[in-house]
Amino acid sequence: MVIDLERCMGCRACVVACKTENETPRGAFWMNVFRYENGEFPDVEQGFQPNPCHHCSEPSCVDVCPTTARFKREEDGIVLTDYDTCIGCRYCEVGCPYGVNYFSWRQPDEGQYGFDISAEQEGGSGESLADILRSHDEDYDGGAPWSDPDLDVEIEPRGTEMAGRPETGTMGKCTFCVHRQDSDDPELEDTTACEEVCPTNVIHFGDMDDPDSDPSQHLEEKRGTNRFRMLEGTGNQPNVVYLGDKPPEGVRNMEDRYKEPEEAIDAEATRRRGDWL
């Protein structure tokens, strides 16, 4: 993946696209975009840096995994989590220097748009949307309406679930949209949701070894531009190449005080409900 920082405006559309593509719960940003400031008034620089999983060639997260749930797929180098094997020890999260792992503290549905939080569970006063659906049709037993069955596919080489929303107690992170890579839809293959949504064409995904691929072409086009990888010193050999200036040390992050996910989910669960709504 090539990420062209000269064009990123920090809009975070990629962040949301990743969330709806992969149905991750509140607080999980498999794609995260830093917004930062540097310097003092009036000489202030601002920068934006998307930070997905770097799908390292020497992934420390794989090394520390006690179960082989986290592994690197040999054929294309995508680092995946086998949800069926993962025991939720969070070692990979601790062992990754990039801060891109998100543990499923809850069932994904619950954290999505406050969908499946029931009154009984959180001491809330109302039914959840899921309850409303359930009371409407007794055959219906859960699941968000936006839930995409394409995520339930079995992913090779193990034939287990590794795409999209991880279950409670397992670890999630960017999969390079593995379900797209493995699909037989040519419109989806070699694309990622974050790349597709980006309005300014910052993200270029594809086979970096193939000189004709989109990222290789883009690198070629911007030959003269500075390029770097994050935290090269850790020996992880990350596979995300950035174009543009490296964020200097000691920058200040800005506009990224997200609400504490649990607090938000609780709030959404216990929200007041007008009888007339």
């Binding site: 830093f34 220097p97 935290l231 010193g233 964020p247 040390e249 000691g250 920058v251 005080r257």
Partner: peptide
């Protein structure tokens, strides 16, 4: 957690 410049960019 982690190292510069990431450590500055993460809250």
């Amino acid at each position: 957690p982690t190292q510069e410049p990431l450590s500055s960019m993460f809250p």
